Measured scan of single mutants.
Amino acid sequence: HNLTITQGKLFFHYNPKLCLSEIHKMEEVSGTKGRQERNDIALKTNGDQASCENELLKFSYIRTSFDKILLRWEPYWPPDFRDLLGFMLFYKEAPYQNVTEFDGQDACGSNSWTVVDIDPPLRSNDPKSQNHPGWLMRGLKPWTQYAIFVKTLVTFSDERRTYGAKSDIIYVQTDATNPSVPLDPISVSNSSSQIILKWKPPSDPNGNITHYLVFWERQAEDSELFELDYCLKGLKLPSRTWSPPFESEDSQKHNQSEYEDSAGECCSCPKTDSQILKELEESSFRKTFEDYLHNVVFVPRKTSSGTGAEDPRPSRKRRSLGDVGNVTVAVPTVAAFPNTSSTSVPTSPEEHRPFEKVVNKESLVISGLRHFTGYRIELQACNQDTPEERCSVAAYVSARTMPEAKADDIVGPVTHEIFENNVVHLMWQEPKEPNGLIVLYEVSYRRYGDEELHLCVSRKHFALERGCRLRGLSPGNYSVRIRATSLAGNGSWTEPTYFYVTDYLDVPSNIA
Rank of each mutant, 00 (worst) to 15 (best):
V327Y: 08
I209D: 11
R313C: 14
S341Y: 02
W493A: 00
E451L: 12
T502P: 08
D222K: 12
E417S: 08
P403D: 06
W216F: 13
T303K: 10
A330H: 14
S284R: 07
F298S: 07
Y292E: 05
T386E: 11
E290P: 05
Q380M: 07
K432W: 09
V324S: 08
E388Q: 13
A336C: 14
S474C: 09
T502I: 03
T502C: 08
C456L: 02
V507H: 01
R447I: 07
E290Y: 04
W216Y: 11
I418Y: 06
N383I: 07
G325S: 14
N206L: 09
L453D: 06
V345C: 07
R240L: 09
L369V: 09
Y292S: 09
P475Y: 07
V329K: 05
E249A: 13
Y230E: 05
S223N: 12
P431Y: 02
E265P: 05
R400W: 10
L232F: 13
E351S: 15
F337W: 10
C468M: 12
P346T: 14
I377R: 00
L321I: 06
E442W: 10
S444D: 06
S474W: 09
F372C: 10
L453N: 14
S342Q: 14
V443R: 01
V331H: 15
D311V: 00
Q256L: 13
E260L: 10
L232K: 05
P332M: 11
G264N: 15
N510W: 07
G436P: 04
F462C: 02
E221D: 05
R481Y: 07
E258P: 12
N255P: 15
G436F: 08
A395E: 09
L369S: 01
S367A: 15
D408K: 01
R353V: 10
R471L: 08
R447C: 06
Y498P: 04
S342C: 03
S363F: 08
Y448L: 07
E404H: 13
G449C: 05
I366L: 12
E404K: 11
S392N: 01
T307V: 08
T347H: 12
P338M: 12
E452V: 06
S458Y: 09
E227Y: 05
L277R: 12
L232T: 13
S243G: 08
Y441S: 01
R400H: 14
P205M: 13
F355M: 11
S248R: 10
S479R: 11
L232R: 14
V329A: 03
Y292V: 10
L473N: 02
E260P: 12
M402I: 11
H371S: 13
L369P: 01
L235S: 07
R447L: 11
Y448A: 13
T288C: 09
E388W: 06
T373L: 05
T347S: 12
C269L: 09
T210K: 15
S223G: 05
F355Y: 09
E433W: 12
Y500L: 11
E356T: 14
N422L: 08
Y230M: 05
G476A: 02
D291G: 15
E281W: 02
F372G: 05
S509F: 11
S474V: 11
P475Q: 11
S283P: 08
D222G: 08
L225N: 05
S257Q: 08
N477P: 07
F499D: 00
I438L: 08
Y441V: 03
C269W: 08
K317N: 08
A336V: 06
E404N: 09
F285V: 05
S268N: 14
H454F: 00
H461R: 10
S392M: 02
H425V: 13
L364V: 12
L379A: 04
F355E: 08
A336T: 08
G472H: 07
R316Q: 04
L321S: 09
K361L: 09
I418Q: 07
V334K: 15
T343S: 08
Y396C: 07
C267F: 14
R370I: 14
E310Y: 15
A463S: 09
G306M: 14
E351T: 14
Y445S: 04
C267K: 09
K233L: 14
L364R: 09
T415M: 13
H416E: 04
V365W: 04
F226H: 13
G489N: 14
H454Q: 12
Q219A: 06
T373D: 03
A463R: 11
E404V: 10
R319Q: 12
V457S: 02
C269T: 11
R469A: 03
C266Q: 11
S284T: 12
P338V: 09
D311N: 12
N490S: 14
G476T: 00
K287A: 05
S268Q: 14
H211E: 02
V331T: 15
Y441H: 02
R471Q: 14
L505I: 12
D291N: 15
T340S: 12
L237C: 14
E378P: 01
H211Q: 07
Y504R: 04
